[in-house]
Simulated assay, not measured.
Amino acid sequence: MGKKHRVFIVEDHRLFREGLKSMLDSRGDIDIVGEAEDGLEAIRLIRNIKPELVLLDLSMPKMGGISVMKEVKRELPDTRILALTIHESDQFVLEAFEAGTDGYCIKDASRAELMNAVDCVLQGKPYISPDISDQVIQGYISGKKTLKKESNWDTVTQREREVLKLLAEGYTNKEIGDFLHISAKTVEKHRANLISKLDLHNVAQLTTFAIEKGLVEPKT
């Protein structure tokens, strides 16, 4: 057998991550070169390992999948990314492809579909789950919805989105500053900008908004 494809997995749910590893290992042509449980760890490891393909969950602790995509594509433009997600809305599809993903696969896909998605992306072909493709096309045809609507959310910068996610996860300004390599004062400025742009009034409302946008999962 020839050279194996070097694959890195970013997924915070251990059971799902182990399942992915088992399926990919069974192919024989893939070498799992690393894994990460949160977005910040993923960027640090991917930067050093330089895998051929990254399987990336969009809903990650500390730094979301969209931010990870942008950072990976900025530093390693030849590394391919396959988004694995529960999110089926047009908004997530559009944001993922704008961030640089090469494929978009829903987590409840069959094994055959997932393997097809991996093959397509490894071959340099874009991939979108069939149900998503139909949804996006119908959105264009019907004219009842658009892939991108101007809103207050569109004025929020990528850095502000990262701060919003971490605030919603309960981290302090200092902790967020440490994660993002910025000062606590700068974090506070970003928080003030978020409150102003989104017309919200406190961290509780910011947290609710972050959950609605899928940046964090609601606590059970």
Rank of each mutant, 00 (worst) to 15 (best):
M1L: 13
R6V: 01
V7R: 00
V7N: 01
V10A: 03
H13A: 11
H13W: 14
F16V: 14
F16L: 12
F16T: 15
G19I: 04
G19R: 02
L20M: 14
K21R: 15
K21Q: 10
L24D: 00
D25G: 03
D25C: 02
G34V: 00
E35M: 06
A36I: 00
A42S: 03
I43D: 01
R44K: 10
L45V: 05
I46E: 00
N48H: 09
P51V: 02
V54P: 01
L56S: 00
S59M: 12
S59E: 10
M60E: 01
G64I: 04
G64P: 00
G65K: 01
I66S: 04
K70A: 11
K73I: 05
E75L: 11
T79C: 05
R80V: 02
R80L: 03
I81S: 00
A83V: 15
L84W: 02
T85I: 09
T85W: 07
D90T: 11
L94S: 14
A96V: 07
T101K: 06
G103I: 03
I106K: 05
D108V: 13
S110M: 04
R111P: 10
R111M: 13
R111K: 15
A112W: 08
A112I: 10
A117N: 03
D119N: 11
C120H: 11
L122Q: 01
Q123D: 14
K125L: 10
S129C: 05
I132L: 07
G143H: 09
K144G: 09
K144L: 12
K144C: 08
K145I: 12
L147W: 14
S151T: 05
N152H: 13
W153V: 09
W153H: 10
D154C: 12
R159G: 08
E160Y: 11
R161S: 11
R161G: 11
R161W: 06
V163K: 04
L164N: 02
K165W: 07
L166I: 06
L167R: 12
E175M: 08
I176W: 02
F179Y: 11
I182M: 09
I182S: 06
S183Y: 06
L194Y: 02
I195V: 13
H201V: 12
N202L: 04
V203W: 06
Q205P: 09
T208L: 14
F209R: 13
A210H: 01
L215H: 03
P218M: 14
K219A: 15
